[in-house]
Design a protein around this nucleic acid. Sequence first.
DNA 1: CTTTGTGAAGTCGTTCACAGCG
DNA 2: CGCTGTGAACGACTTCACAAAG
Lengths: 243, 243
Amino acid sequence: MSEPDAHIPDATVARLAAYLGVLTRLSDQGVTTVSSNELAEAAGANPAQLRKDLSHLGSYGVRGVGYDVAYLLVQLDQHLGAGPDVPVIIVGVGNLGRALVNHAGFSSRGFRVVGLVDSDPALAGERVEGLPIAPESALEELIAQTGASIAVITTPGQAAQSVTDRLVASGITGILNFAPAALSVPDSVTVRKVDLGSELQILAYHHRRGPASRTAVEPITASLPPVAASQVEPSQNVSVPKP
Amino acid sequence: MSEPDAHIPDATVARLAAYLGVLTRLSDQGVTTVSSNELAEAAGANPAQLRKDLSHLGSYGVRGVGYDVAYLLVQLDQHLGAGPDVPVIIVGVGNLGRALVNHAGFSSRGFRVVGLVDSDPALAGERVEGLPIAPESALEELIAQTGASIAVITTPGQAAQSVTDRLVASGITGILNFAPAALSVPDSVTVRKVDLGSELQILAYHHRRGPASRTAVEPITASLPPVAASQVEPSQNVSVPKP
DNA sequence: CTTTGTGAAGTCGTTCACAGCG
DNA sequence: CGCTGTGAACGACTTCACAAAG
């Protein structure tokens, strides 16, 4: 299975994104070669799993040596990336929305926040990190002008579904949802949900079980409920066992 | 399996946390009864899965009727929760850290941010939402004084591991990690990782596959790599198919 | 001799479908 | 008669272990 176009499991895609991040850092550090052992450890994964994940894309390693960082980086980018400067808009400019405008993790991956929208008229026109906040009525226009196909929702839960419907109608195909609500979208749209409150709740649960229980957590891109639709929870977890 | 103490799969725990959030909202709205169908839809899950999840805790429903919202809420709280006002500290007071200090999703779940730490001396003493920023040297003291057992890391990636080591040494048992780094911790500590850059990358991947491919995303508490250790990625995703 | 790539086996989680109970 | 609770079937992901390649 070295052919590129086959179906790639969701769990694998999530890990590939993590590998990409690690590779970018290694490349910046001047590292030229990595073995599956090294890369897996840096990404919090299992070496065998990493090799299998990579095998979905093709054979980019050299037996007896490992992987060329620069080359693998390019290959991963071609499979996952959408080129540099992918436009993203943020809907809901509260504390969280503001914090994400210049988020380093976004820009380092080639994403750029090109638009902000908020329903509060008092915010219209205000600038955050140099970017003006558009009124909610300008949502469709903003998407058309910026060409964004990915949106981040940081509104209160009750506003999330109506915003989502408008985003979808305007051609958005990927949504990162921080609002505490299950979004309903067509199968053609992918949703990943990040529920920070649930994250702490999960940590509290493990704590209550006592320091003795070593219940593994979910890996970043562990397993997902493979459904035809596309609501995903970003709360992926990665278990880091001690091999 | 109606006995409480059995082992609960990580995937289930993550969903239970989501159910808890939905139930709280329903309760606030005055809803007194829900069926597995209704609750599952609101949480973005499958009715059968929800019933199975709940069965890990016991039989709290009434056949032919559904679940009593208030009662189920209490039961879930007892299994997941750690009581009201669970203390949490945040290490790394950048944009993201500041945004999380008064995050509504935290307080509504009973968590309260009681301490802030940053390595930048220039920030020491500054207040965020009324809470003073402590110097890094006071980390251990802060944990001892507040009794926090859960920490949120929002530092740059390179600082994450050293901070983690100190947190663990001070008795922290749960870590929510936003830094782009795989943390190494003992089995007794649970780590959940949220990598926002990877989240967008995953969305971009699905976009590239064209609107035709309805690759399901990972469910919030889908499958995890069950390891003895406890590094989890919060990037859980939930697929929301159209039943 | 080292490290990749991968079929096969094993494990875990989700979905089905119905018995059980109100 | 409706809806829950659950054993059993199914499917997916992970881990193993080794052949192949450099």
